[in-house]
């Protein structure tokens, strides 16, 4: 192993989640490489302190008043989200069910996903990010959120969950064409939805 490969395995090495033969190779490298040994000790120290950090932090002031004044309407779905949500939910259900079906105890790396599939995933991801950035105004800027985009947020969240689950399944079985197709389909649906939302918020008809 070279330094980059050792660094890539330091977390599972510290956690003890590593095969014996890999442990031997890493320890051989650490015995000869001062820089990686410093990385290892630093990672161990950091792990100890981060474990001691409290998860909960008390804000300097009460934030409730600023929230309560914005709770004007009871939680409800918009007319728009009523038809689009079931579509996304159905898609997510297929993705989750398929991901579960293909789930195996083995672990893997995203690097094992074929390069062409990785390239398409990255392209869809970039297109979705660009659309979302363009659709959503800076929340610190105080401008009003686009109506269709706001209505689509729960659907987008559902699609993001489906993407995460499909991706996890594909990492476990990277050459599976059905899983590749499924992940790319969900990515494509997300981009299509964002394009629809952009059209609606630009003044198009529902």
């Amino acid at each position: 192993m070279n330094c980059a490969e050792v660094r890539d395995h330091l977390d599972p090495y510290i956690a003890g989640h590593i095969e014996q033969h890999q442990r031997v190779v890493i320890e051989e490298h650490l015995a000869e490489c001062g820089e990686c040994k410093v990385d290892l000790e630093a990672a161990r120290s950091l792990r100890r302190v981060t474990a001691s950090l409290p998860r909960s932090v008390v804000p300097r002031r009460s934030l409730w008043d600023g929230i309560e004044s914005r709770l004007a309407m009871p939680p409800s779905r918009s007319r728009w989200s009523k038809w689009v949500l079931p579509i996304a939910a159905a898609l997510a259900t297929v993705a989750l069910a398929t991901a579960t079906w293909y789930e195996s105890p083995g672990t893997g790396s995203a690097d094992a996903i074929p390069a062409e599939v990785q390239r398409l995933i990255a392209a869809y991801g970039e297109a979705a990010n660009d659309l979302q950035s363009a659709l959503r105004p800076d929340p610190l800027g105080g401008s009003t959120e686009p109506v269709a985009f706001t209505a689509a947020l729960p659907t987008l969240e559902t699609l993001d969950l489906a993407i995460a689950e499909s991706r996890s399944a594909l990492i476990r079985d990277p050459d599976n064409p059905a899983l590749q197709h499924l992940l790319l389909s969900v990515h494509r649906k997300k981009v299509e939805l964002l394009r629809q939302v952009a059209t609606l918020d630009a003044g198009g008809e529902e």
């Binding site: 804000p59 934030l63 929230i67 914005r70 939680p75 729960p154």
Partner: peptide, 19 residues
């Protein structure tokens, strides 16, 4: 920024509780 985002999170949670 964290205070404003925390408020945004709870407002969004309220709006999306149906999901």
């Amino acid at each position: 920024e964290a205070e404003e985002l925390t408020q945004d999170v709870f407002v969004r949670a309220w709006e999306r509780l149906s999901t």
